[in-house]
């Protein structure tokens, strides 16, 4: 027995950059992104598609990259956390997470930000229930989701204002 299985040529465009590689069929998309392309922002938290830390956007759809084979992404256009910011600026979603303390350890954060970004693209003014349903596939063990929900509300422009002293201390 060896690590055989056919290898397959694939081409993907990630955050605007085109990558042509060969992969084994068994390679998960998340391992391809992390290990082959060294894009380390997409995380792995559960191996079973429950936690959403590996969430990315493939052809405009939010998916979990541990639940898709790399070979299935052949020809796809992919967005990962590294591709969100433009010219060094945080996006409104990222900024809201910062201002509302929507992250602690930061491990679920890339997936959480991708889910929130996907939600707001399709629904710019979500209700709290819609926000909760939109991040239901993203597990966070640090925040209890309270400040994450607040962050997404704020990013949608409907959030509560940050405390005055936060603005004052803003860097």
């Amino acid at each position: 027995m060896s690590d055989a299985g056919m290898v397959h040529p694939i081409t993907v465009t990630i955050n605007g950059e085109r990558y042509a590689r060969t992969v084994q069929a068994r390679k998960l998309l998340v391992h391809f992104i992390r290990d082959e392309l060294a894009l380390k922002g997409t995380h792995i938290g559960c191996d079973t598609g429950n936690c959403g830390a590996c969430s990315i956007i493939v052809n405009g759809k939010l998916i979990k990259s541990c639940m898709m084979l790399a070979v299935q992404a052949d020809g796809a256009t992919i967005e990962t956390i590294e591709g969100l910011e433009a010219e060094g600026e945080l996006t409104p979603v990222q900024r809201a997470f910062h201002e509302h303390h929507g992250l602690q350890c930061g491990y679920c954060t890339p997936g959480m930000v991708m889910s929130a970004t996907y939600l707001l693209r399709g629904n710019p003014d979500p209700s709290e229930e819609e926000i909760r349903r939109a991040i239901r596939g993203n597990i966070c063990r640090c925040t209890g989701y309270v400040n994450i929900v607040r962050s997404v509300k704020a990013a949608a422009g409907a959030g509560e204002p940050a405390a005055a002293d936060r603005a004052e201390a803003s860097r």
């Binding site: 598609g49 639940m67 596939g137 993203n138």
Partner: peptide, 9 residues
Amino acid sequence: IEDQQIRNR
């Protein structure tokens, strides 16, 4: 069914 990511696939 489950969550948005899974519903998309």
